[in-house]
Design a protein around this nucleic acid. Sequence first.
DNA 1: TATTGTTATACTCTATAACTATA
DNA 2: TATAGTTATAGAGTATAACAATA
Lengths: 140, 140
Amino acid sequence: MRGFERSLPMALMRARESIMSQFRPILAEHDLTEQQWRVLRALASNDKPCSVGRIAEQTFLLGPSLSRMLTSMADRGLIKRAAHADDARRSEVSISGAGLDLVDEIAPHSEGVYQRISDALSRKELDVLYDLLERTAAID
Amino acid sequence: MRGFERSLPMALMRARESIMSQFRPILAEHDLTEQQWRVLRALASNDKPCSVGRIAEQTFLLGPSLSRMLTSMADRGLIKRAAHADDARRSEVSISGAGLDLVDEIAPHSEGVYQRISDALSRKELDVLYDLLERTAAID
DNA sequence: TATTGTTATACTCTATAACTATA
DNA sequence: TATAGTTATAGAGTATAACAATA
């Protein structure tokens, strides 16, 4: 079995932890978990409202976890839920104005983190990294 | 704020999920959580026994979580704990024979996953990926 | 006094199954 | 019958503080 250092999941985790460790304190200041932030970011990037299932796919959260998170995020006024026009089983979830405000408040800190990434990796290297990650994600 | 698609933490997570989703069923068959597997792999790659703090660093687990996990893994016979020779505060944790057997049992499946990665990425591309990930992990 | 590791506590997320209501 | 989403439940991990033992 290959060494721990040459384990791809661990290498991916080390890279991710390096970034998230800078970012988590900012999220904590705004009373957001990493998972809630993923939901907020997914909704902010989707221009249109989308289904709960679609959010689950985008954020790698399980339905039951997400369902509860959406309830608490709606209580907090960060997201909105509406009934689907054609299919009454579906929800149409979207980010609220307050949710967008929160994203905008956190965004500058995020860009600060990306500045440090840009100091370490050239634009070209970042492009290569994204490409390799995407191809890894596409396996199977 | 950059799009969700161009978020590096999410790109890292998507890549990692793609691999781990193939691997988790194998771990589940052997009653191992992802975190327990990280501990086992870390200990298997360290030739010498090491401290609880060192394992926590390697596996990105918090002390209290790790402490409980080590207790249950020791009860299961997967690891061994010994007192440190010079410093009685420290533990010396190492993998047991049964722990090594379990790693060896799971290893072939792991190589199967790496085979699929090798089908998608050339050796050179994998080297580039590891290098870029390492440099990302080294930020700050 | 600082450090290593454990225990205590509250909360969040994971994971699976069962359920509701639509389709 | 199948699908979308919620509720129920058990368990594991996260996170912080407090603690014991030792340096």
